[in-house]
Amino acid sequence: MSCAWKSSVVFAVVAMLLASSSAAVAGEKCAKSSVTAVSHQKEDKMDIVDTAVEAGSFKTLVAAVKAAGLVETLKGKGPFTVFAPTDEAFEKLPSGTVETLLKPENKDKLVAILTYHVVAGNVKAADVVKIKSAKTVQGQTVAIDAADGVKINDANVVKADIDCGNGVIHVIDAVLIPKE
């Protein structure tokens, strides 16, 4: 093996090592986004909670899920179908309702309301329009009307089929309240 060839190989190896270590240092700040990009390419999807957080329009819902102690459940395997009210939907409730529900002494009522928004299974829009009701995780049923758009009780579905790693979210414009 000639000296010139050996030094070329050594130079190439050193250059590769330097390049990879420089890339690692330079890429440290965006490592999470790179991992996320790779994950999405592999068809891995965020769970329901992370999807709601990232959307930015479910801050009240996410706060309620945290206060109710349901984060781990909704990050679980599922699958779940969530009828997710937007922040604007929560604003339609009478003044002080959300604040009252978020108090620790009202946790049971908050859990009942939130689980009334969840159906076990992965129910897509194409399935929802074929049924008249669905049993919620809370135990009661919600009425489904697909005659003019899709309504869940009195709430309109404003966006359907947000796929998540552990289910699906359908965005609604009102908070569903179970019967007492």
Rank of each mutant, 00 (worst) to 15 (best):
V53A: 09
Q41Y: 13
L70Q: 07
L61C: 08
E54V: 05
D44E: 13
V71S: 13
V49T: 04
L61F: 11
K75Y: 02
T60I: 14
V62L: 01
Q41K: 11
E72R: 05
L61K: 09
S39G: 14
T60N: 09
G69C: 10
K75D: 02
H40Q: 15
D47C: 07
V49K: 02
V71G: 06
T73R: 06
I48A: 02
A52E: 04
Q41M: 13
A63N: 09
A64E: 00
L74S: 04
K66F: 06
A68K: 06
H40R: 15
L61A: 10
I48N: 04
A67M: 11
V49P: 00
L70P: 04
K66Q: 15
T51S: 07
T73S: 12
T60A: 10
V53P: 05
V53I: 15
V49W: 01
Q41R: 12
D44P: 00
S57T: 14
V71I: 14
L61P: 04
Q41T: 10
G69F: 04
T73G: 06
S57Y: 05
G69Y: 03
E72I: 01
A55R: 07
S57N: 15
K45E: 12
T73D: 07
V53N: 04
V49S: 02
T60M: 05
E54S: 14
L61R: 09
F58D: 06
K75C: 01
A68G: 08
E72S: 13
H40W: 08
K75F: 01
V65M: 00
S39V: 12
A67L: 12
A67Q: 07
A63E: 00
K45N: 08
I48F: 01
V38E: 02
D44K: 14
K42D: 10
A55K: 08
E43K: 14
V38S: 03
K42W: 11
K66Y: 04
A64V: 01
K59N: 14
K75T: 05
L61I: 10
G69W: 02
A55D: 15
D44N: 12
D50I: 10
E43A: 12
Q41L: 14
K66W: 05
Q41G: 15
A55H: 12
F58Y: 13
A64D: 00
G69A: 11
D47F: 01
S57H: 11
A52P: 04
L70V: 09
A67K: 13
D50F: 05
V53T: 10
M46A: 10
K75E: 09
A67Y: 10
L61Q: 06
S39A: 15
M46R: 12
H40N: 14
E72G: 08
L74M: 09
K42G: 08
A63G: 00
S39C: 14
A68S: 09
T60E: 03
D50V: 13
L74Y: 11
E54N: 13
S57R: 10
E43H: 13
A64F: 00
A67E: 11
L70H: 04
E72Q: 12
S57P: 00
K42H: 12
V38G: 02
D47E: 02
K45P: 04
E43G: 06
G69I: 11
S57G: 13
G69V: 11
G56I: 14
V62S: 01
T51K: 02
S39E: 15
K42P: 00
V62P: 00
